[in-house]
Simulated assay, not measured.
Amino acid sequence: MGFSSKKWAQIISNFASLLYFFIIIVQVPLFRVPCRIGSCQTPVEVMACASEFLPEFVVKALLYPGAVKRALMEGAAVPSPDQLLHPYKFKKGKKTDLRQLEVIVGSYLCVAGAFVGLLRRGRMSYLGLTLILWGIAREMFFGGKHATKAPCLFPQMIITMVIAFFSMRRDVRKLLKCCIPDCVAERLKNRSKAKYS
């Protein structure tokens, strides 16, 4: 089997997409921003606090995997679906804080990108993370002192951005072509042909 940038790009992007989906759905903390519940640390939590655009059952379905993960880590009972929304003060008519518009839009793109990435590769996830990064950086440097808890980024955010980049198949293929010269690829092909001939 010889070197094929297309094949390797597909393998890498498939694995990265699955890993990204897992990070978003089980709600690995990526950042901290002030929100309705005090502070939110994941795109799903931001969506739950700014959920006037989503039906209640969708918000519950998104929150449930993270609630199960927390319950297992803390040795507590898994909450019922009806109890999931209590900490998020879920109210259909409640307005969102527009100062965090980039973080909110980015969070929606991150979660949507996690699902879309399982079917086809795209840039939605990476764009969402970039928006969140921009929103938090703007708040940190130009936001003033209105927030009770200052926003910050966790190291996991940078790792997740790298994973989101590797989920973009075309970009990974370009990177592979750039990093592995044609002569090396040709040599690997010839070696594999000689091996199987």
Rank of each mutant, 00 (worst) to 15 (best):
I12V: 15
C49E: 15
S197W: 08
Y126F: 15
D97C: 08
M47T: 05
G66L: 01
V33D: 01
R191L: 12
Q10H: 10
K145G: 00
P181E: 11
V68K: 11
C35H: 12
K95A: 13
Y126A: 13
K145W: 07
K7R: 15
K7F: 10
P87D: 09
Q83H: 11
P79V: 05
L62Y: 07
Y88H: 05
F53H: 09
S197C: 05
S51P: 02
R123P: 00
C40A: 15
S125N: 10
V103R: 01
S167G: 13
E74S: 14
S4E: 08
K89P: 00
V58Q: 04
L109C: 03
E74A: 10
A48V: 02
A16M: 10
L84E: 07
F141G: 03
T160G: 03
R123E: 11
F22E: 08
R99M: 04
E52K: 13
F90R: 04
V111W: 01
C179A: 15
A76N: 15
C40S: 15
E102I: 00
A71I: 08
I180R: 03
P155C: 09
K189L: 09
L101P: 00
R99N: 13
S39C: 07
L129M: 04
T42K: 01
A9T: 09
G75T: 07
Y108T: 06
E139I: 01
L175C: 10
I104W: 07
V78C: 03
R36V: 13
K195I: 02
C183V: 14
I25H: 03
G113F: 07
L54T: 12
Q83D: 15
G75K: 10
G106A: 04
K193C: 03
C110G: 03
F165P: 00
A185F: 04
F57N: 12
